[in-house]
Computed example of a mutant assay.
Amino acid sequence: MSVSNQIMKGLLDGAILGLISQGETYGYEITKKLEAHKFPDISEGSIYPVLLRLSKKGYVNTRMVKSDSGGPKRKYYSISDTGKAELKVFKDKWIKLNDGMNSLIRGE
């Protein structure tokens, strides 16, 4: 796995938690929101393992909703209190890392 792929994998947890913190959502919608925020090459298949991991850690709550069109139930995700605390930690670390990288890139 390339360094850029490893970085992206690490950032997805925080990005997805951030999206879920904005309101209850489901997998396909998360993919579309990531695309709208210009995340490169994120497929629906790559976010479901992240959602499962976040759920197992207790960062997100899930609920199944019956489809209006008679299709399969859809799983909706909302952020838990533990997830909110984890998102704050992620944001704090991201700000420090981002500041450091920008400083390096600018040659400061």
Rank of each mutant, 00 (worst) to 15 (best):
N61E: 14
G18K: 05
Q6N: 11
K93N: 14
Y48I: 07
L97D: 15
Y59F: 13
K66W: 06
D41L: 13
P72R: 04
E29Q: 03
Y59C: 09
N98S: 09
N102S: 12
K93V: 12
I20R: 04
T31Y: 04
S55C: 08
K93A: 15
E24Y: 01
P40F: 00
Y48W: 06
L87M: 04
I42W: 05
S2K: 13
M64R: 05
S80V: 11
I20Y: 03
E44V: 03
G18D: 05
H37Y: 02
R63C: 08
E35C: 00
S78I: 06
L17C: 08
K84H: 08
K75D: 02
Y26K: 02
F90V: 09
S103L: 09
I16G: 10
K96P: 00
I95R: 08
S21L: 06
V65P: 01
M64Q: 12
F90Q: 14
S4T: 12
N61T: 05
S69F: 01
P72M: 01
S80M: 07
R74S: 08
F90M: 11
L54Y: 09
I42K: 00
Q6V: 06
L12R: 06
K91R: 10
K33N: 03
S103G: 10
E35A: 07
S69W: 07
R53N: 03
G70I: 01
M8Y: 10
A85L: 13
L51S: 00
K96Q: 13
A36D: 10
H37N: 13
L87F: 09
T82C: 05
P49K: 02
T31A: 08
K91D: 09
W94R: 03
E29Y: 00
Y48V: 07
Y76E: 00
G83C: 05
G100H: 02
I47P: 14
D92L: 15
Y76P: 02
K96N: 09
E44Y: 12
L52R: 13
D92M: 15
L34E: 04
P40R: 04
L17F: 00
P40K: 05
I7T: 14
N5L: 06
K38H: 05
Y77V: 11
A15G: 12
V89P: 00
I105P: 07
L34A: 02
S69K: 12
K84L: 13
F39D: 03
E108F: 06
S46P: 07
T82E: 15
Y26D: 02
M8S: 12
I95A: 11
I20F: 01
T25C: 01
H37D: 07
A15T: 12
L34V: 08
S46E: 14
L97G: 14
L12H: 06
L19W: 04
I105H: 08
D99M: 03
I20Q: 06
Y26S: 10
A85K: 15
L11Y: 14
G45C: 01
S46G: 12
S67M: 06
